Amino acid sequence: MQYIQPRPSSIVAALYTVRDLGVDVAVLHGPSGCSFKHARLLEEDGLRVITTSLADNEFIFGGQQLLEDVLRYAEKTFNPKRMAVIGTCVSMIIGEDMQAAIDSSGITTPAITVDIHAGFSENIDGVIAALEPAAKAGWITEDELTRQRHLLAKANEVERLRGAASKRYIEPERGDLKHIAAQALLEYARSGKKGMAIMNAKKETAYMFIDELCALHEAAPDADVTYLANLGDCGLPKVRGDAERIRTEAQERGLPLSILGSLDEYGALGDDMGSAIQERNPDFLLIVGVPHAVPAEYTKGITVFSITNGPRQVAPLRELGHQYVLVEIDLHPKTLGVRSIVESEFGAVLRSMKCAPS
């Protein structure tokens, strides 16, 4: 499909992936402004992002010597355990051999090159471009690489079928008012109706999405609600660590949580979560994170409250029949660099109604 709305960048996807692989320093081989916003955000999450700052002179004569200098500087200054050189549109166009620069630089830090640019139609190409050299370097197994390929394909399929990539252009929306949805959700929960709350979140976004399940349990502790979340122990190093921290804290808060799948399996869990919904047969359902992963056949006839962090996901969720659709604006920046659960806007609203009559 030829989109006319902005789509995620494969360069940025590569940056997030090397972060998940335990890279300490990522060198963007391109202009200083390339992927600036995400580079700054990732620095909040422990990944030091530096750039070779290629300019018009290097566009003509090449920037290998500059890259070698930056690699030596990075090793000496930051003492990293792992490094990655990330390509850009400029390095691709001028045909830069980034591996040759690593080999000639004399650095001893384990390092991989990610040959990528922003011209790919799918951002998952950036993920695969980072995972393949990581597997070759022994940072992940071939089995994990195969697993990741499968999960990426499933996530891409979900977005194309029911997500923000399902149409050429989708008008961004803010969704329903949170206090109206919170009041309706608590009325269901406090009425004795049978409910189910599911988190199917992508990676670190779970630090905030899990809060909405915690808040519902706090506001309606005696409600007949079962809680399910994709916090299993699988995936790349950072993903596993995040899941363990979130799972432990949620349980310490008293959330009676069952686990189904892991944080990198959000796109592949639709049918499994759908089967759990059918088995529970709830009157109402709260799904947070990537709600559109669950096909509509599993939620038909159920009052559904869904929460996403994508304004362009609102319309597709309404088309799936979800009666209440909410957006947690700026969720992703708020969950970068954190190591404990972050209060959500919807969670705060639920807590404010904790003692309110139904």
Score class of each variant (00 low, 15 high):
2 Q>Y: 02
3 Y>V: 13
6 P>L: 05
10 S>M: 12
13 A>M: 08
16 Y>D: 15
28 L>M: 12
28 L>P: 01
31 P>F: 03
32 S>Q: 11
33 G>L: 15
34 C>M: 12
36 F>I: 15
38 H>A: 11
39 A>I: 14
39 A>V: 13
42 L>T: 14
45 D>R: 08
49 V>Q: 06
49 V>I: 07
50 I>A: 13
50 I>C: 10
50 I>H: 05
51 T>K: 12
52 T>I: 02
52 T>H: 05
52 T>L: 04
53 S>R: 03
57 N>I: 08
57 N>R: 01
66 L>F: 08
79 N>P: 00
83 M>D: 09
87 G>S: 00
88 T>K: 07
88 T>H: 04
89 C>N: 09
92 M>D: 14
100 A>H: 12
102 I>C: 10
102 I>P: 00
106 G>M: 10
107 I>S: 00
110 P>E: 11
117 H>E: 02
120 F>S: 10
126 G>F: 06
127 V>C: 04
132 E>N: 13
135 A>S: 14
137 A>R: 14
138 G>W: 12
144 E>R: 03
147 R>W: 11
148 Q>E: 05
154 K>G: 05
163 G>C: 06
167 K>E: 15
170 I>T: 11
171 E>W: 10
181 A>E: 13
184 A>N: 03
185 L>M: 15
187 E>Q: 12
187 E>H: 13
188 Y>R: 13
188 Y>V: 08
191 S>A: 00
194 K>L: 11
197 A>C: 03
197 A>Y: 02
200 N>K: 14
201 A>Y: 09
202 K>R: 14
208 M>L: 08
218 E>R: 08
223 A>S: 14
225 V>Q: 00
228 L>S: 00
229 A>H: 02
235 G>Y: 11
236 L>T: 09
239 V>N: 06
243 A>P: 06
246 I>G: 01
247 R>P: 00
249 E>N: 13
251 Q>N: 05
263 L>A: 03
267 G>F: 10
269 L>T: 13
270 G>F: 02
273 M>C: 06
276 A>P: 01
281 N>P: 00
283 D>G: 01
284 F>D: 09
286 L>W: 04
287 I>Q: 04
287 I>K: 01
288 V>F: 01
289 G>T: 10
294 V>G: 11
296 A>V: 15
298 Y>R: 00
299 T>E: 01
299 T>L: 04
300 K>W: 11
308 T>D: 07
310 G>F: 10
310 G>K: 09
310 G>P: 07
319 E>S: 02
324 Y>T: 07
327 V>F: 15
327 V>Q: 15
334 K>H: 08
335 T>L: 12
347 G>H: 06
351 R>W: 07
351 R>F: 05
352 S>C: 05
356 A>E: 12
